[in-house]
Design a protein around this nucleic acid. Structure first.
Lengths: 218, 218
DNA sequence: AATTCTATTTTTGAATACAAAATACATTAT
DNA sequence: ATAATGTATTTTGTATTCAAAAATAGAATT
């Protein structure tokens, strides 16, 4: 029995690890997270684990059922559609602020994200998804609105949409990304807003279509 | 020393009490919240208190400075302006969904909120503020989008704007509320969106004006 | 009088202990 | 065999303990 108490923020690394494990599916949706067992597996006590789980709960990645336990949340298709409405709200506002507040140097970083894909013929799906996430993250970051950033973390679960497979081919979204970036670089708010809303809205519509298909099966 | 352990969600009532205490200013912005002392005062141990504080941290009402402690957050004028941008994002999306999803019965409840003030000549400031908050809460609630609702809780700190005094006279906002409600009842998305954005935007501009005034004093 | 250093106290973050609720399991009754 | 009941085990929510870091107070020095 080791009698050493750590004092340096154990919950943060635990949070990071859990989040990755859930994103990778190592902890499956619906799965119960037994605290003592999980804590031992991660080499900490229940205290920092619980703090990490609470953070994930705020992001709607896990859910706590009182006196029952913590579970990895299952994100339904309907909820994912709701998430896309949230992303449109967040990012549309973010884009407005980016155009107001970001420097040209900062804007150029947005552009760089998709440059590797412009050259190549075949787009690596995994790398493109990462770039896509980075693009949307950066828009929120460059908004320089801390409250918006915090709110954004709640709808970050959109990143779990891959559970429903590929929503739209990269070739399609690539063009839309280019349009958004171009408008932002020109600091053309109206075009940027329109392009961004269109981009998110199209994906949401794809999800809604699947929802339709599913319910019409019954 | 009582040897009784409660098992029924102590953190929720603690959260409620703390939130009210902060809203009333009983716990002042900037004030340090010493855990042991506060826990004793509330009749619980540090464990449920800490959980409550984490919830408040997520809503940006308190902040944790690692290894230093928990503090009641001071919300600057600039941040409040940022909050209003967030509210516009949230509520604009909410209104869209309300028009899509809410029943006529539900919409009628929106209307009822301000009815007491239509009759009276003099508007009771405190009661009007409560009604105002209820109105905005209800829009988010009737959106029936759980993710949006969760996000909304983060920018709920707009309710602390009264710390900066009265932003606009009730007579002014009353008219705007009426316009928003009318458009929602008609399920006229375009008008509702325009009215709502105008309403929030005007308040934000007032705050921005104060920010200007303040910085030009220097 | 101001500043630096040191000893003491306080407070935080983590680990552990503990009681009640939830679950699993076996036994009995139907 | 299935349902119902009682018992043992597990797990949660809270309380407590503990060690390290931070804050404080006091002494020593400039």
């Amino acid at each position: 029995m080791q009698n050493v108490i750590q004092h340096n923020n154990l919950s943060q690394p635990v949070y990071d690890r859990l989040k990755k494990m859930i994103q990778k599916g190592e902890l499956a949706p619906g799965q119960k997270l037994v605290q003592e067992r999980l804590a031992t597996a991660l080499g900490v006590s229940r205290t920092p684990l619980l703090k990490a789980l609470q953070m994930l709960e705020h992001e709607m990645i896990v859910e706590s059922i009182p006196r029952r336990g913590m579970y990895v949340r299952e994100i339904s298709l309907q909820e994912m559609i709701d998430v896309y409405d949230c992303r449109e709200a967040i990012e549309s506002t973010a884009v407005k602020l980016v155009i107001e507040r970001a420097t040209d140097t900062e804007l150029s970083k947005l552009k760089e994200i998709f440059e590797p894909f412009a050259k190549t013929q075949h787009i690596h799906a995994g790398k493109y998804r990462k770039a896509d996430e980075k693009f949307h993250d950066m828009i929120v970051e460059l908004s320089k609105n801390p409250v918006l950033q915090k709110m954004s973390s709640v709808s970050d679960i959109y990143k779990l949409v891959y559970q429903y497979g590929l929503i739209r081919p990269p070739e399609e979204t690539m063009i839309e990304h280019a349009l958004i970036i171009k408008a932002i670089l020109n600091r053309d708010l109206e075009s940027a807003d329109r392009a961004l809303r269109n981009h998110i809205s199209l994906s949401r519509q794809k999800l809604a279509q699947r929802q339709q298909d599913k319910s019409s099966l019954v």
